[in-house]
């Protein structure tokens, strides 16, 4: 059985199992099939700028380079913020109980959702108290990191119809704007086109 996440509310601890929910599980999914003019199956590959080098999945890798262009061992790098402060790593949320704090709706809506989990009690236990608390309008939150790493995401707990969901989100950069903080519409770029680019089979 997978390791349980432990949530703590008002001194009560609730071990929970997490099950990821996505569109595929709810609605199914769409796959694209492609064929050439002769009816043979076609697959997506990457074409390099030279126009002839074709690269399949797994054919590229990411290298980290210093200012002289030399390859650098990532284990020897130090993560910093934009202010130059060293980033301290955070532990996994599975390593200790996570205290729940009440969140506001606006705070939740300021986050972009990364993933959604359905929470269930481990076999032989229940979390009726947690279900009662979340059955109303309240939303709770805690700092979440699945494996530990450089920073936390925010996990929000919301309940509906006796189900408890954990929604993992990242805080966004939404700002209030005043009159003198207008946006800019991207100009339409003029470009020359060839006659072949215009479709006539629409008619």
């Amino acid at each position: 059985m997978a390791r349980a996440l432990v949530l703590s509310l008002d001194g009560n601890e609730f071990p929970v199992q997490m099950q990821k929910i996505d569109r595929e599980k709810l609605y199914g999914n769409v796959e694209i099939e492609a064929f050439d003019e002769a009816g043979n199956k076609a697959f997506l590959q990457i074409l390099d700028v030279d126009g002839k080098t074709l690269i399949d999945t797994g054919g590229t890798s990411l290298a980290t380079l210093d200012e002289d262009g030399n390859s650098v061992d990532r284990k020897k790098l130090t993560p910093i913020t934009s202010d130059g402060e060293e980033v301290q790593s955070v532990p996994s949320s599975f390593s200790a109980p996570n205290i729940l704090y009440e969140a506001t709706i606006d705070e939740y809506l300021s986050h972009s959702v990364k993933s959604v989990y359905l929470l269930t009690p481990p076999e032989g236990s229940n979390f009726d108290l947690l279900e009662d608390v979340l059955s109303g309008d309240a939303i709770y939150k805690f700092d979440f990191s699945y494996r530990g790493g450089l920073e936390y995401d925010t996990a929000f707990l919301a309940g509906n119809e006796k189900n408890i969901f954990m929604i993992i989100g990242v805080n966004t950069n939404m700002q209030f704007v005043k009159l003198n903080q207008s946006g800019v519409l991207e100009p339409v770029e003029e470009q020359e086109i060839s006659g072949e680019e215009i479709e006539f089979d629409l008619f």
Partner: peptide, 18 residues
Amino acid sequence: IRYIDENHNMVLNRRLLK
């Protein structure tokens, strides 16, 4: 979050052909 090397210089990522 950015990364710096032992000399406190910024590093960058580049994609390579494997």
